[in-house]
Design a protein around this nucleic acid. Sequence first.
DNA 1: GGTGCGTGTGTAAGCGGTTTCAGAAACCGG
DNA 2: CCGGTTTCTGAAACCGCTTACACACGCACC
Lengths: 330, 330
Amino acid sequence: MRTTIRDVAREAGVSIATVSRVMRGSASVTEPTRERVLAVAQELEFVPSQLGRQLAERRHAANGIVFPDLSGPYYAEVVLGYEAVAAELGRSVLILSTHGRQDADAKVLEMAERCDGLVILGRTVGDTTVERLAKRGVGLVLVARPAIATADSVNVENRDSAVALAEHLVARGARDFVFVGDPDGSSEFAERLEGVEEGFRRAGSRRRSLALAARPTEEAGAAVADSVGGVDDLPDAFVCANDELALGLMARLGERGIDVPGDVLVTGWDDVMAARYAGLTTVRQPMRELGGTAARLLDELINGSRSEPRHEVLGTELVVRGSTLGKEHA
Amino acid sequence: MRTTIRDVAREAGVSIATVSRVMRGSASVTEPTRERVLAVAQELEFVPSQLGRQLAERRHAANGIVFPDLSGPYYAEVVLGYEAVAAELGRSVLILSTHGRQDADAKVLEMAERCDGLVILGRTVGDTTVERLAKRGVGLVLVARPAIATADSVNVENRDSAVALAEHLVARGARDFVFVGDPDGSSEFAERLEGVEEGFRRAGSRRRSLALAARPTEEAGAAVADSVGGVDDLPDAFVCANDELALGLMARLGERGIDVPGDVLVTGWDDVMAARYAGLTTVRQPMRELGGTAARLLDELINGSRSEPRHEVLGTELVVRGSTLGKEHA
DNA sequence: GGTGCGTGTGTAAGCGGTTTCAGAAACCGG
DNA sequence: CCGGTTTCTGAAACCGCTTACACACGCACC
């Protein structure tokens, strides 16, 4: 930072207060003075320091977003939706990926010092950290994480679509399934599992078993495929907690000569781009909208235009593709 | 921000200077004093204001990254790679997507006021803006954009892989091709086109025509497929400027009953996740690494550990899949 | 021709830290 | 026991901006 407000003031023969007023148009200044100041500012290439401004105003005009990992397409989409809206609202966006770091909580706390508010995706930080942030007065929006009383939240509807998915599978002849994904790792996953179980139950079926995948990745999905003994060892369907698991699983099954959907049905969750090309039946989530909604809620929170916390739930949609349809449709 | 350094100082019976020294461990303080201050800080839940700190230190400890649009998987990957490294280096990351906004330049200039340096991807802002930033002394790293003398840059090798791609196509029997993508919209695309042309030329072939796609999206790719008259109207190969064009094109060709690779070969660029599942031949770019390298260069720039600008070029790799291979391999 | 008010501008006190400088205290060898 | 260091600590000056407050001025009004 070179030229400051004082340089401009001196050069224009006015006080710094006047320069400030001109620069932000906050109070009336006579036209000639205004013009002179603007001319000098222009000439000196004066750009007001955001730092000085922020300190004086005690606000950052920025908000953050915390996500576990951008590796998958899911979070990238949410972040994009968030950025788009936040930028529109004139706020800078800080991002922080925790990718399983130990010091995630500290990092988030630190980031909170640079923002007026932040959005937290999933189980990136502990509850105590969230509580502390809330107490500190930072605007808080929780996404894909169980709602709490002191913060806003945005979630997607998981149960209903899970039931719908189960009904579809039953209609396609499935009587049992294996859930691929760790329900303890994510409240979302847990809801999905419950919903699918309920759907099967309603149809009078029994659940066969539960496959725990450590992380929701393609590799983990492939590993599950490897663990299958053979065609006789298959359930009627693999219900995967997200698309990446399903894609990894399906690809490896194919390599092993196991036919989808002939030998086993496979479903995912999220409807990422690759799911379309792989012909994967899945549940579409409005990822962009998830981020956008979070941005809007956060803005309301920060501007104090609302005191009661709000909890939004966005709808989802079953998308049926080849991985659960007979070949004639694939 | 509630409790300040002065509150702690008062409570601990020391001066603010001492508190500052304790908090940042910058100078020696006797053990008893140190402990007392820390105890009080803990009790009062004192968290030093980043704003105050930044203003005093005249640095932001943050850097930004500007990209056109996060819609595609490409930029998301680059941003992720960037974030991972930047976070490791202890810097906050600001993101800004220009998605064709008119005020992009202004937004970038504004963002520069919040960062010690920034990374600019592609043709997001005009050259004059870049010049101005450089003159202002912000650290600057250009990615996927022609290098300039006053800033660092990171690019991928386009020509060689383009030639390799062309050779592969020729080996598969192609004698002409249509390039899908706007070479005027991106220097990268232009390089790719030139490389492919050269490869075909070396093999003694003539280029057939140039399809201009407005934006590098799946929709635009599909539109190109729609514009094809019929099987007789096809080139030997569609060389697409990126994977999304190729995927959109290939999908729509399939819908129209045109066989890939039987009737026409199709290639993309980037190797995004969906390309694997669609069996698309493409050129793999080290997207994560692109972002990571940019982060490291920027860090060096900011820490002043280097004065000469550096220009990195990362390698790429041809990935051959079903879209250019006979069915027997697909 | 005073009183009263509205307007434009300057002064100065913050915002919450860091850091220079100098003085006080503790330590050293002679 | 003393002068010279070394080590701690505090006062105060910033960093660059916003804004409350005061003041001067010009004008309409009675």
